[in-house]
Design a protein around this nucleic acid. Structure first.
Lengths: 144, 144
DNA sequence: TCCATATATATAGCATGCTATCTATCATTG
DNA sequence: CAATGATAGATAGCATGCTATATATATGGA
C-alpha cells in the first residue's frame, strides 16, 4: 500500500503527461508536427531568433535534448540555424515561413487538447489545478 | 497568450513529469533501478506472477513499451519470465529475491520525492491536487 | 599576447514511450 | 477437424529526454 498508483503524485504526473502527449500528437500530426517541436515553436513564435541556449532556458530541457530537437526541426524545414553575428559559438534559430504559418492551426489544436483534459473541471478548479501544478514544479525544480 | 507555458496544463504536465522522473531517477539509481522499472516493480510487489498483458493494463502503457521494460529488467536480474501453465502464448513475470529486497528502500526513495514535490502544499491542497490530477487523467483517457 | 577557464553547441549512448507489424498460440465455428 | 479470427508477445523504427563527453570559440588575467 506504500504505493497506490492512483495516489502517487509522481505516477499521476507521468500518466497525465503521457496522455497529454498522445492527445497533442494525434492533433498536430496532420500539421506535420511532433509535440517537442510544437513546444519549441511556441517559444519561437513568441520571439524568433533565439539562441539554442535561450530555448533551453525557456523550455527547461537539457542542452543535448534541445540540440536534437532542433536538428529534427531543421530536417523538417521548420527552422534555420544561422550564424550568430556577435558570437562564433552561437547560432540564432529562425522560423521558416512554413513554421510561421502553422502558428494558428497548431495552437488551436493544442488548445483543444487542453480543453478536453480540463473538461471535467469547473473554471475555478482549472485555475486551482494550474496553480497547484506550478507550485509542485517549483518545489521539484528547486531540488532537481 | 494562447500558449503561455506557465498556464498550459499540457506543458505543466510534461514539465512536472520530467522533474518527477529526474528526482526519482536520482533517488533510486543507487539501488540499481530506473523509473519505469520501479513502476513495474510496484505492480509486481503488489501481486507477483502477473502476465505482461496484466502489467500493461495496470500501468497503462503500450504492450511494446512493457515488453522492452521487462527485457531490461530481466537483463538486470529483477524479474524472470516463466512459461504460463495454461496458455502457451503467455508468460508469468516473477520477481527475483533481489527485486523483493528492493521493496522497502525503493518505495522509501519514491516517497521522499513525492514528499519533496508536494512539500509546498498543505495537506488539503495535496489531496485536492491528486483528485484534480486523477480527473484530468480520466478525461484524457476517455478520449486517447 | 598567451594560457586557463568559461560558454555554446555537438555527439554518443542509453531509457522510456509510441506506432506498426510479425509470429505463435488459442478459440470459435463451419 | 480445419480454417478463421482473436490474443500474447516480440521486434523494428522513431521521438523525446537524460548524462557524459568532445569541440570550438570567448574572455580574463598573468
Amino acid at each position: 500500500m506504500a504505493f497506490d498508483k492512483t495516489r502517487s503524485a509522481g505516477f499521476l504526473a507521468n500518466h497525465m503527461a503521457r496522455l497529454f502527449a498522445k492527445g497533442l500528437q494525434q492533433n498536430i500530426r496532420p500539421l506535420g508536427l511532433a509535440p517537442a517541436q510544437f513546444m519549441t515553436l511556441v517559444a519561437l513564435w513568441e520571439q524568433d531568433g533565439l539562441t539554442q541556449r535561450e530555448l533551453v532556458e525557456r523550455l527547461d530541457v537539457e542542452q543535448a535534448t534541445m540540440a536534437n530537437t532542433l536538428t529534427r526541426m531543421e530536417r523538417d524545414r521548420l527552422i534555420e540555424r544561422r550564424a550568430h553575428p556577435g558570437d562564433g559559438r552561437s547560432q540564432s534559430i529562425h522560423l521558416t515561413p512554413k513554421a510561421v504559418a502553422l502558428r494558428e492551426p497548431a495552437t488551436a489544436a493544442a488548445g483543444r487538447v487542453n480543453a478536453e483534459a480540463l473538461g471535467g473541471l469547473t473554471e475555478e478548479e482549472r485555475l486551482l489545478f494550474v496553480d497547484l501544478a506550478r507550485r509542485v514544479v517549483a518545489s521539484l525544480k528547486q531540488r532537481y
